[in-house]
Design a binder for these strands. Structure first.
Lengths: 160, 160
DNA sequence: GTGCGCATGTAAGAGGTTACATGATTAA
DNA sequence: TTAATCATGTAACCTCTTACATGCGCAC
């Protein structure tokens, strides 16, 4: 919908700005592209390049736009989520407090690094829909950092 | 780890306080319980009840605790996420602005309802690890609401 | 008397990831 | 020379959801 793209391009786009919404691997991406092409939702144009593999540029057809529009009108499915870190924290019931603290502090550092990465990535963005998605990722990231700090402060650190 | 439970109990627990971390369906839950039992990580005790189906109470064994502890020590896998709403918002490129606004406003109402539900659910909780998970869900929820309000304010509403 | 809560489970299928295969160019 | 980027694709596998099957008690 955004613009004609190859499978490779789509994966890059999804793994960068759309990372907060979903992820894509070639194992799903290419077969899906083939299927949508067979259904008439996409058209292809092969582009030969020098010094590089040729690429297949996919473009959405009018039928594709109609079906996308139909899909957009239907209510979105509930978010599907698996946060292994949260699960581990919950299950860490007989772990010594300082191990739990290490777990949480480590997660905070990772999340802070991700926040920085997202902020620098947001700089290059002008498209408003892309900016919205980035803002979403940023605010969720920031909320998690605040929560992690609060959790850290609540872990009882015993003096030996 | 928390306490001995039946599969039915685990599902309720996961679907309430652990909803922000993962979800469970019987189709995965029961076979997994059988597998862990066969591996020696769990023990069972069947409890007959009057007027109700008998239940199987599973209890973690020492071996189970050792394996859980091993798993806890390994770094958590990255969060896996599928947010269909975010995807739809991103793809809603040729939708009229007022339709986009309706989409976003509707999502905000849903999220506000979820926040209220989470808040009332948090009242009954005394276990600190449960409280942490609930706090996580609450702050992410609140962050999303703030973001949705910001997005709403950025949608250009044309006067007819 | 209808539906919900309790409580167990299975089978089919949908959906996804990982690992593999190929191969040229370019930057460290 | 080693690794990353570009670019396509398949096959095996794992995992999870959905739908079904069963059946009692209780509240509306």
């Amino acid at each position: 919908m955004e613009c004609p793209m190859s499978g490779y391009d789509i994966k890059k786009r999804v793994n960068s700005v759309l990372g907060a919404a979903t992820q894509a691997s070639y194992g799903t991406l290419y077969p899906t592209l083939h299927k949508l092409l067979a259904e008439g939702c996409l058209s292809v144009q092969e582009v030969l390049q020098q010094g590089r593999p040729s690429k297949k540029i996919y473009r959405i057809t009018d039928q594709g736009k109609r079906e996308l529009s139909n899909w957009l009108k239907q209510p979105a499915a509930a978010d599907q989520i698996r946060r292994e870190f949260l699960l581990k924290l919950y299950l860490a019931r007989n772990l010594p407090a300082h191990d739990v603290l290490a777990l949480v502090a480590n997660r905070r550092e990772e999340t802070e690094a991700m926040l920085t990465a997202l902020q620098s990535e947001k700089n290059g963005i002008t498209d408003p829909k892309q900016a919205w998605v980035m803002d979403y990722a940023l605010s969720v990231c920031q909320a998690e950092i605040n929560w992690l700090k609060k959790v850290e402060s609540q872990i009882p650190v015993a003096e030996v």
